[in-house]
Nucleic acid binder design. Structure first.
Length: 108
DNA sequence: ACACTGACCACTG
DNA sequence: CCAGTGGCCAGTG
């Protein structure tokens, strides 16, 4: 999208995340050419709650931690959604995160 | 119209 | 190694 805003680009990338896989704020920001704007990715996710087909639960921080869980309808929803896809979560962190990590750059 | 801040991350001292 | 700080975009008071 030529006229897409940074936020719209973020949503597009998030929609590409395969079921059962996760990615990070930094990876998305880097893929969009704004490695220093990972913080805004989180902001974009916060604003994407009302949008359909935006699996915000598949976006975690660099350590695989569910930092955004508090922004869901209820804190446990993020973990429940992930576990529903076969992603194991323990102590707010994705198990085997390095193995389940999905880099948007390798989607090409 | 200005200042602040937010689901982060990496660099500096 | 740990604490502090800058950066980037859009929305809100």
């Amino acid at each position: 999208m030529k006229n897409a805003s940074f936020f719209q680009d973020v949503y597009d990338v998030v929609r590409l995340i395969p079921r059962g896989r996760v990615t990070t704020y930094g990876a998305i920001a880097s893929y969009l050419g704004a490695a220093r704007s990972s913080r805004m990715v989180g902001w974009a996710m916060n604003a994407s709650h009302h949008l359909p087909d935006v699996p915000a639960h598949r976006v975690v921080n660099r350590q695989g931690m569910l930092t955004g869980k508090m922004m869901f309808e209820y804190p446990m929803q993020m973990q429940e959604l992930l576990e529903g896809e076969g992603v194991e979560v323990s102590d707010n962190r994705v198990i085997e995160f390095s193995r389940l990590f999905w880099d948007p750059a390798e989607f090409s």
